[in-house]
Computed example of a mutant assay.
Amino acid sequence: MNQDPLGRKLVWIMAITSGAAAANLYYNQPLLAVIAQSLQAPSHATGWIPIVTQIGYALGIFLLVPLGDLMEKRRLILTMLVLTSVALVAAAVSLNLAWLLVASLAIGITTITPQLIVPFAAQLAKPQQRGRVVGTVMSGLLIGILLARTVSGFVGASFGWREMYWLASGLMIVLAVVLSRMLPKSQPSLRVSYPQLIGSLFKLIRQQPILREASLAGAMSFGAFSAFWSTLVFFLAQPPYHYGSEVTGLFGLVGVVGAAAAPIVGKIADKRNPKLTVGLGLVITSLSFLIFWVFGYHVLGLIAGVILLDLGVQTTMVSNQARIYSLPSDFHSRLNALYITFYFIGGALGSFLGAYGWSRWQWHGVCAMALIMLGVAFTTFIKRRQR
C-alpha cells in the first residue's frame, strides 16, 4: 500500500465521512419521546432503541471490521455505506416498535464505515503524523455524533422522526459516490479464511495487554457518555426545563467545543506517552459528572458539564487509539475491531445503566452509574501504571 503521507483534503474527507456515518447511531436519542408518542409505546420500551443500535454496532465491529485486513478496504467501505442506507430506509418505514428495533439493530451492524476509515487513515499516515491524523478523523467522528443530536432534534420537532431516517439514507448514498472517486485502493494484509480471521481476534486479546487496558478504559468512558446522552431527553422534558427534542439536540452543539480538541490531543500523544492523556481524559470526564450531579438543574451547569464530558471522552478515545496503532499495522483493522467492539458494549451497558439509574433515582442515579463506570476505568489505569 502507498505509504506516502495523507493529503490534507483526503484526511478531511475521511473525517467528514466518519462523522456523517457515525451520526446514524445517534439520531434516535433526541427522537425517543417523539417516537414513543408516534408508535404509542411507553418511554421505557423506546429506551431500547439506542441500546439495540449499540449492540448491533458492537456485533458489526466484531464480525465485519476485521475484514479490513482480509479484503480491499475501499470496496468494503462503499459496500457498507450502501447497506447502511438500506437499513435506514427500513427504519423510516417502520410500522411499530418491534419493526423499528430490528431496523435499529441492522443500522448498528452496518454502520461500521468509521471504524474501517480510522485504521485505513492510520496505515496511510507516516508514523510521526499518525496521532494527528487519527485525532483529526476522530474529531470528525465525534463532532458528527454530537451534531447528529442537534440535527435530529430539529428535524424531529419540525418534520417528524421518519424524515430524519430518510435524510440519513440519502446522505449515505452521496458519501458512497464521493468516496468512490477519492479513496485509494488497498492491498489486503492477510490471506486466510474468515473463521481463521475471527479466531485470530481471541489470540490478539490474549497477546496484547495494551489492547486489553485500552478496551476496558474506553468501554467504561463511553458507557458514561452514553448514560448521559440516552437519558438527557427525559431529564430536560421535566421540571425545571420542560424542553423538547429540538433543545435537547442543541446540547450537541455545545459538545463540539470539547470534541474539536481531538487533533491537539493527537499531537500531544505523538510527543508524549499517550497513557498520561488517557488518565487525563478519565479525570475530565469524572469532573463533568460531578458538575452534572451538583449543578445539573441549572443550564450553565449542564453546558459546562457537556463541554467537559465530550473533551474527556475524546481525549481518552484518541489516546487509546494512538496506543493501539503503535502496534504492528498488519492487524490494525482487527485491533480496531476489538477495541471498538468493547467500546460499544460499554456504550450499550452505559445506556442500560443510565436508564436503570433514571428509573430508580432520576438524574442523580444517572450520574452515580456513570461515576461507577469511570471508577472502574480509572482503577484499571492506576493498576497498569503501578505495574
Score class of each variant (00 low, 15 high):
285 T>E: 02
206 R>K: 12
216 L>R: 05
318 V>Y: 04
239 P>M: 05
234 F>T: 01
311 L>V: 05
314 Q>Y: 04
326 S>G: 07
236 L>N: 13
320 N>D: 10
247 V>Q: 12
273 N>S: 15
218 G>V: 09
252 G>L: 07
333 S>I: 09
231 T>Y: 15
289 F>E: 08
339 Y>I: 11
237 A>G: 08
215 S>K: 00
294 V>L: 11
317 M>S: 15
240 P>G: 01
304 A>N: 07
309 L>A: 02
205 I>F: 11
268 I>D: 13
225 F>E: 03
306 V>Q: 09
327 L>E: 15
316 T>W: 06
241 Y>N: 04
255 G>L: 01
232 L>A: 14
233 V>H: 07
279 G>R: 05
266 G>E: 14
218 G>W: 07
249 G>Q: 12
326 S>M: 09
223 G>T: 10
297 Y>R: 09
216 L>A: 13
332 H>G: 11
325 Y>D: 06
253 L>E: 10
206 R>P: 07
337 A>L: 01
255 G>Q: 00
323 R>Q: 15
312 G>A: 00
280 L>S: 09
281 G>Y: 04
226 S>L: 06
268 I>S: 06
259 A>M: 11
284 I>K: 01
282 L>P: 11
280 L>A: 13
346 G>K: 03
226 S>I: 04
286 S>F: 12
276 L>S: 12
286 S>E: 08
205 I>N: 12
319 S>C: 07
308 L>W: 08
316 T>S: 15
315 T>A: 03
206 R>Y: 14
248 T>D: 13
319 S>E: 14
217 A>K: 10
220 M>G: 07
318 V>D: 10
345 I>T: 10
